[in-house]
Each structure stands twice: as C-alpha cells, then as structure tokens.
C-alpha cells in the first residue's frame, strides 16, 4: 500500500538538508527576523518568534535528523507515516513555493531560492507517492 513511500521520504529529507545548508549559507535570518518584526508590529497577536542563528540552525538540524530517522518506518509502510508524509510534503511544497514567490515579489534571489525547485520537486514526489 505504501511501497513507494520510502524512497520519496528519503529524497525529501535529502532535499531538506540541502535547503537548510542553502539557507544557512545565504543568510536566511537577515530576511526572516526583520520580516517577523515587521509582521509583529502590524499584527501583535501573531506569536512569531525571532531566532538566533545558533538556535535556528540547531533546531533545523535536529528536525532533519529526526525526519531521516523515520526513513525506516517509511520503508516499512507504518500506518502513522501516511499522515506524517502528508504534513511533511505539504509543508515543504509550501516552503519551496514561498521562496520562489518571494523572489519574484522582491525581484531578487531570496535566501533559499537556489534549492527551492529541488525541495518543491521532492515534496510533490512524496505527495504523489501516497496511496
């Protein structure tokens, strides 16, 4: 039932790892933190946090390692992996699209746009692999 989930899950984990490296190398927080401050100034009720580079990168590495660790469950076709794959695929597809739309809107390459097509493709692959 979930034969194709394993390779697609690993592909999206690899794409996420590349994307995190891309964002770290292109100073993603120099865009994210000012954007969050601007949004909070306009909508104070939104609980959006600003983060330091160490906390941000540490958190993303931890999440990426955890997602890689779930690969064996994806290959086994564990029932819980189906909703997890939906969430992972939808969030990452949205992530990739946001980088692309943001770059067009700002008329310059935003941090993370290098790997955006890759993470978008891998996310669609995972979503398409779901039964």
């Amino acid at each position: 039932m979930t034969d194709g989930l394993g390779p697609a899950w690993v592909a999206l984990c690899v794409a996420l790892a590349i994307h995190v490296a891309d964002e770290a190398l292109t100073d993603f927080l120099s865009v994210y933190n000012p954007a969050v401050r601007s949004i909070r100034a306009r909508f104070p009720f939104l609980p959006l946090p600003t983060v330091t580079f160490r906390v941000w990168l540490g958190g993303l590495i931890a999440v990426t390692v955890l997602l890689f660790a779930l690969s064996s469950a994806a290959f086994r076709g564990e029932p819980g992996m189906r909703p997890a794959a939906y969430v992972f695929g939808l969030v990452m597809a949205g992530n990739g699209l946001l980088h692309l739309v943001g770059s067009v809107y700002m008329r310059k390459a935003m941090p993370g746009v290098y790997s955006a097509p890759l993470i978008l493709g891998a996310a669609l692959y995972l979503l398409a692999s779901l039964p």
Binding site: L100, S103, V104, V113, P117
Partner: peptide, 8 residues
Amino acid sequence: GTAVQMYA
C-alpha cells in the same frame, strides 16, 4: 519553479 529560480 526552476525557471523562476533562474530568473531570480
């Protein structure tokens, strides 16, 4: 998406 990326 790849085309947009190259444009950016």
